[in-house]
């Protein structure tokens, strides 16, 4: 418990204040998030669980800036991301957040290493000549170095997701946000990917916010948030996880 208290003595990495998201595109406006207020601290491994349509993905889309909130405030690392325009958001996101998708979303025409280099390229991180070395290091970290020059289509789902995680790490962001990263993988591969996330939290001191349906995996996070009908209905801290490493 002491370790968790240690975390909470520092400033939160993510601060959500009264966040509301209403979709107006359908015939009837639909509110996906109702007045959500939340703090996430550095080094936490947060699992978002909930039923389909509960608002989990909407919540992480708010944090990553992939979608715009209707009202409220979101601060990440002292940046009020609700005030950023599209371009500022792109630069900020590229340097601050690594995004991992359920369907991997690697660019099919680029090799694994090129996919990992792409965020560095866009955000001008590292010298152009050094980017390949960095990318290879990240691929080694996810045990995919030997596949560096293969196209995504030549890889299995689990391997693609590892490359996607390496890409998320490319600009060394403090925060990784993952939307059901194991949802499209078999249980063995899902376990391996999850172990990788745990290592990132414990060894690399990353903060991870992850949506998951898998109850077994959800039990391995340091903090579990249950989302139902657009509100956080349960917030559990697991004392038995040593998040300070």
């Amino acid at each position: 418990m002491g370790a968790i208290r240690n975390i909470r003595t520092v400033d939160p990495l993510i601060r959500l204040r009264n966040v509301v998201k209403t979709y107006t595109k359908g015939a009837v406006p639909f509110t996906a998030l109702h007045d959500v207020t939340l703090d996430v601290y550095p080094g936490e491994f947060v699992g978002l669980i909930g039923k389909s349509g509960s608002g989990k993905t909407t919540l992480i889309n708010m944090i990553t800036g992939i979608d715009h909130l209707t009202s409220g405030e979101i601060w990440v690392q002292d940046t009020p991301i609700h005030t950023l325009n599209e371009n500022q958001m792109a630069i900020w996101r590229g340097r601050t957040i690594g995004v991992v998708f359920q369907f991997f979303q690697l660019l099919p025409t680029l090799t694994c290493i090129e996919n990992v280099m792409l965020p560095m390229d866009f955000c001008k991180v590292h010298a152009p000549t050094e980017r390949a070395d960095y990318a290879l290091n990240y691929l080694e970290e996810v045990e995919m170095a030997e596949h560096a020059h293969k196209l995504p289509s030549a890889l299995s789902g689990g391997q693609q997701q590892r490359v996607a995680i390496a890409r998320a790490l490319a600009n060394d962001p403090p925060l990784i946000v993952a939307d059901e990263p194991t949802g499209n993988l078999d249980s063995k591969t899902a376990d391996a990917v999850f172990t990788l996330f745990e290592r990132l939290v414990h060894q690399e001191h990353k903060t991870i916010v992850m949506v998951t349906h898998d109850k077994d995996l959800a039990a391995r996070v340091t903090r579990s948030l249950t989302v139902s009908d657009g509100v956080i209905s349960n917030d559990s801290l697991y004392a038995d996880v040593d998040v300070t490493g």
Partner: peptide, 16 residues
Amino acid sequence: TKQIGIMKAVGARRGQ
């Protein structure tokens, strides 16, 4: 469209 979305998600700016 989708690839544009992915690139934006990993930090690409509009001009890029």
